[in-house]
């Protein structure tokens, strides 16, 4: 079977549709992951035994089990308890929750590197805990964690390809469907690979910018 450019042009619009879904899912679940991770890290820092145990359980659970298994689990078990959701919110939710676990470790690491004198200074200035967190600690945490967080967003983006297992029309899903309908696998999969490759470039550019700034 040889490469057929006219077939490529024919399937390109459908693959582009997949690109939009990939971007949508990546943006939505990374928002969920970044804010959820921050919330988990703060919970871990301010709470006592119970909150810590909860966060620890959360991290162990979602980092020890493959995303695919969690996806299948939510997709098949939720309807049994009466919650029927379309595949896209399930995919966004599961990816967001899994990566929130990874991100919270990054936030926690950056919180540790903030010198404790800064907290003492906040107490000395009689800032309320709320203001201390909101105006002092959280901005610093985010600033220090940014490169590592970007790395996790990049892996989240790469992992969105798995969502095609639930029938979410991400790029991989579209390629699969097109190939299945026309019995031509060479062009859709190769194109999908190349497009995924190109979609990595902005991330790599941003990461190299961060590297320059910190080096």
């Amino acid at each position: 079977m040889t490469w057929d450019w006219s077939f490529v042009l024919k399937i390109l619009p459908r693959l582009m549709e997949g690109v939009w879904y990939t971007i949508l899912v990546t943006l939505a679940s990374s928002t969920l992951a970044l804010s959820g991770g921050l919330a988990l890290a703060i919970l871990e820092s301010v709470s006592t035994t119970f909150g810590r145990a909860f966060v620890c359980f959360w991290l162990e659970l979602f980092r020890g089990v493959p995303t695919l298994v969690l996806l299948y689990f939510t997709f098949y078990v939720l309807p049994e308890v009466g919650i029927i959701l379309p595949a896209i919110p399930i995919g966004i939710g599961v990816l967001g929750i899994v990566y929130a676990a990874y991100c919270s470790e990054v936030y926690r690491g950056s919180l540790i590197t903030i010198p404790s004198e800064l907290r003492d200074a906040c107490v000395a200035l009689h800032l309320s805990p709320n203001v201390t967190w909101r105006r002092v600690l959280i901005p610093l945490m985010i600033k220090r964690a940014a490169p590592a967080l970007l790395n996790y967003v990049l892996s989240l983006f790469r992992e969105t390809a798995v969502l095609f297992a639930l029938g979410v029309p991400v790029l991989m899903g579209q390629a699969n469907e097109v190939g299945y309908e026309s019995f031509r696998y060479l062009e859709p999969y190769t194109l999908a690979g190349v497009i995924y490759l190109c979609m990595n470039l902005p991330f790599l550019y941003l990461l190299s910018r961060f590297k320059d700034k910190h080096a």
Binding site: R158, A175, L186, A192, L197
Partner: peptide
């Protein structure tokens, strides 16, 4: 290294299994 890492493992896997034998 970037070429291997950039498309996720799923895409590479499908490509190696379905598209590679067609070449």
């Amino acid at each position: 290294i970037e070429l291997i890492r950039a498309p996720s493992a799923v895409v590479l896997l499908f490509w190696a299994f379905y598209a590679l034998p067609l070449l």
